[in-house]
Amino acid sequence: MAGYLRPNSVSEALEALRARRWTVLAGGTDFYPERVGKPLDDDVLDITALDALRGIEARSDHWRIPALTTWSDLLAADLPPLFDGLKRAAKELGGVQIQNVATLSGNLCNASPAADGVPCLLSLGASVELSAVDRVVSLPVARFVLGNRATALGPDQLLTAIVVPKPKARRAYGHFLKLGARRYMVISIAMVAAVAEVADDGTIRAARVAVGACSAMAKRLPDLEAALKDRRFAPGLGEAAVAAHLGSLAPIDDVRGSATYRTDAALTLVRRALDELGARP
């Protein structure tokens, strides 16, 4: 018979994870759809009563987004323009009833190639905080998500927070574009997240651009990022992007779109995202 545990304290949860194998459950929006017409026979560790894992905090050199932060929480949070891309992803993810319960951390742990959160977090240079009874480790998102539905999460670990470093520059902007075949409730055919840190002289100090749904996991585009560095942060930024910058993507054909189309669309999305980013006042 399936077990169910809904602890109130993180330490209790971590103890449980050390003792045996559990399926962690947060918003359940990936969990339940995978079990339509199937028995609900998992041993489930429901983490939604861990109140310590709620509430975004701005700290001296980073923001801490605890594991139970929902997409709606992100939308409501008072965050600087750096997070505009993540917020836009939040607004376009599923419908409001999904946003109200689904967590950013769950999106990351589920590690779908089409997870909208992953390119956003890559563009933010985020890391995850993984906690176990005996250790807390920090891992950059790029090393946490290992592939299609694969992460570096150990059986005894819980993702307790996502950590976003504060940019060195005073001005930093984020943007996100999603391509889908309908307006709401649609899994992305491709999506792009971009962040630019702008130096006081109006040049780009650092840029991070990531593309999702075009590889087993979302990928950053280091060559493009290098090309953007030191450019003026201004309209027309998109012209910096060329097809070769997207060479590391390996899209597939599926019902949502062909590989050729994804390659082509990703470049358009990257250019537009950068154009719109550069047009920020």
Partner: peptide, 24 residues
């Protein structure tokens, strides 16, 4: 649908809309 896709099961939980098919 039991999968969050149709919203027919939408109820309010503490005043906010959620899919009751995905709330344990």
């Amino acid at each position: 649908c039991n999968a969050g896709d149709c919203g027919a099961c939408t109820v309010l939980l503490d005043g906010r809309q959620v899919c009751a098919c995905m709330v344990p």
